[in-house]
């Protein structure tokens, strides 16, 4: 594979074995998104998830009555897409590049298939997805306190 990034040195994947890294490399492609370009659409099939190399991706809720609402932005080293790991494998948010953004995209179906036969990999991937989910839950809960308006 011709990736410009050493996957093994990505913080998210730091605990993976060489074989696991090699596998992920085999299903990864590096891609660039221009500002405003969509990585994936809400409710679409989760075929590819991403790690941001540089730039910024917004998770958006598309509202029929107004322009999209950005819920959270993701940057360098962060995982874009969690729902790909769980049935029915469809996205809950739209992901759109807010800046020119470089990413590593992973073939979701291939990773899922590999996880069925490789339980060690499955556990590692679940750990990564769960950790990201927990971080976002913590951050969201803290944001809900509206700390800056009502310091406490």
């Amino acid at each position: 594979m011709n990736l410009s990034v050493d996957l093994g040195r990505t913080e998210l994947l730091a605990h993976l074995t060489d074989e696991e890294i090699a596998f992920l490399e085999s299903v990864a492609i590096e891609s660039e998104f221009a500002e405003g370009e969509v990585l994936f659409e809400e409710d679409s099939e989760a075929t590819r998830f991403y790690i941001v190399i540089s730039g910024k991706v917004g998770l958006e809720l598309v509202s029929p009555r107004r322009r999209p609402i950005v819920i959270q932005t993701l940057g360098r080293g962060e995982l874009v897409g969690l729902s790909w790991f769980f049935p029915p494998h469809t996205w809950s948010w739209r992901a759109r590049a807010l800046d020119p953004t470089r990413t590593l995209g992973f073939d979701a179906a291939a990773v899922r298939a590999k996880c069925v036969e490789d339980h060690n990999l499955s556990e590692q991937v679940l750990r990564i997805v769960a950790k990201q989910a927990v971080n976002r839950l913590h951050a969201t809960r803290t944001q809900l306190l509206d700390l800056y308006e009502f310091p406490r």
Binding site: E11, Q72, T73, T140, T142, L147, R152
Partner: peptide, 28 residues
Amino acid sequence: DIGLVTNLLTRIEYDPENVTAMVCGPEI
């Protein structure tokens, strides 16, 4: 960006073992 300020910590370059952090904001 949109999100909690802690999200930004993973995006910047610093040596966690040779850094001084100066933090001011709500206690939480």
